[in-house]
């Protein structure tokens, strides 16, 4: 790890004062410190934001919206009666981070801003995993890489556990910087980098992600379903989150978001459309799964993930409807 300056401000204003272009934000630290030990991140200054009370807490607004502070830990998500009642899919997603040690310090914003697990990225070959003009991922060991959105240079998968569930619920995030604050749809926060000069999410140097807001989830049927290689600490092979609105016994609208299948959390409009106007049955859920992977393309070693993604969508839909998976 390189040596660095350290500051621990108590307010957002104080944090903005000490954050500059060569600073990084420290929250839970479980990813950042690993990245720094690998030399992938080597800041001049580390700004610990954990003492900033403004970034903490889960609040339900009068309009039924749910605001989750950036520093809310995964453990707090798991133990929140409000989230269990209003958006259990987010709680299910947090439960997928199978390490109490990470759950106790890892934060919601940290889950969204963790860097990809792609082993080429983690070994210093950049997000596009290029060496001597060739893609190490496209020609190499890509068993965990993207099956959707993989036409460009980036083949890693977005590592966030919470993003699919939050995006399915149309979550927005609040960002503050020296020049003011902005709110963006979480789905638009993520991007597929076309080169190593770009990052996989849009947070400029000096900016802080302060909160995640979910519009009132009342009446939506939600679920997250992960398919995992092992039950202990690991990132899922694939995950699907759904939010379904019903009109009588028919689906009026459905949002289906897949995780760990593309460089971004993958919103499948096709899967949503496949459910619209239908009753939720084993057949319609399976049709949604088929639709979700219709445009999927396997790399040399990850064809199995297409079937897993298909099944994850089907089971998430069934779970959301309270049916046996």
């Amino acid at each position: 790890m390189n040596s660095f300056e350290y500051a621990s401000p108590r307010t957002i204003a104080g944090a903005l004062e000490v954050l500059d272009n060569d600073s990084v934000i420290l929250a839970g630290g479980t990813d950042l410190l690993s990245l720094m030990k690998e030399g992938l991140v080597a800041p001049k200054r580390v700004v610990n934001i954990k003492e900033i009370d403004e970034l903490k807490g889960i609040n339900v607004g009068e309009d039924g919206s749910v605001t989750i502070g950036a520093l809310v830990t995964l453990e707090e998500v798991l133990e929140s009666p409000d989230l269990a009642e209003l958006c259990p899919s987010v709680v299910e997603a947090a439960a997928g981070v199978r390490s109490p040690q990470i759950q106790s310090v890892g934060t919601v914003a940290g889950d969204l801003c963790q860097r990809p697990r792609c082993w080429y990225y983690r070994n210093g070959f950049g997000l596009t995993a290029m060496k001597d003009g060739k893609s190490l991922a496209r020609d190499g060991d890509n068993r965990y890489h993207a099956i959707l959105g993989n036409d460009g240079a980036a083949l890693f998968v977005n590592p966030s556990s919470l993003a699919p569930a939050l995006i399915a619920l149309d979550a927005k995030i609040s960002i503050v910087g020296k020049s003011g604050s902005r709110e963006v749809a979480l789905a638009d926060f993520f991007q597929t980098p076309s080169s190593d000069q770009e990052k996989e999410y849009k947070l400029e140097a000096g900016e802080i992600l302060t909160a995640i807001t979910i519009p009132s989830p009342a009446g939506k049927k939600v679920a997250t379903y992960e398919i995992r290689e092992k039950q202990a600490l690991d990132w899922p092979l694939t995950a699907a989150a759904v939010a379904i609105e019903m009109n009588g016994d028919q689906v009026s609208a459905a949002k289906v978001v897949l995780g760990h299948v593309a460089p971004v959390p993958w919103v499948s409009a096709e899967a949503g459309a496949a459910l619209a106007g239908k009753q939720v049955t084993a057949e319609s859920a399976a049709a949604a799964g088929d639709a979700a992977v219709k445009s999927a393309k396997a790399l040399s070693k990850n064809g199995f993930k297409i079937q897993l993604a298909r099944v994850a969508v089907k089971r998430a839909v069934l779970r959301a409807a309270g049916m046996e998976v």
Partner: peptide, 27 residues
Amino acid sequence: CDRSTCGACTVLLDGKPVYACSVLAVE
């Protein structure tokens, strides 16, 4: 591992289990 993965460094911080490899001493 020194990378928040294996748990051999687990200690309690204010009663909660944490990976001591991924907490700065100063914090």
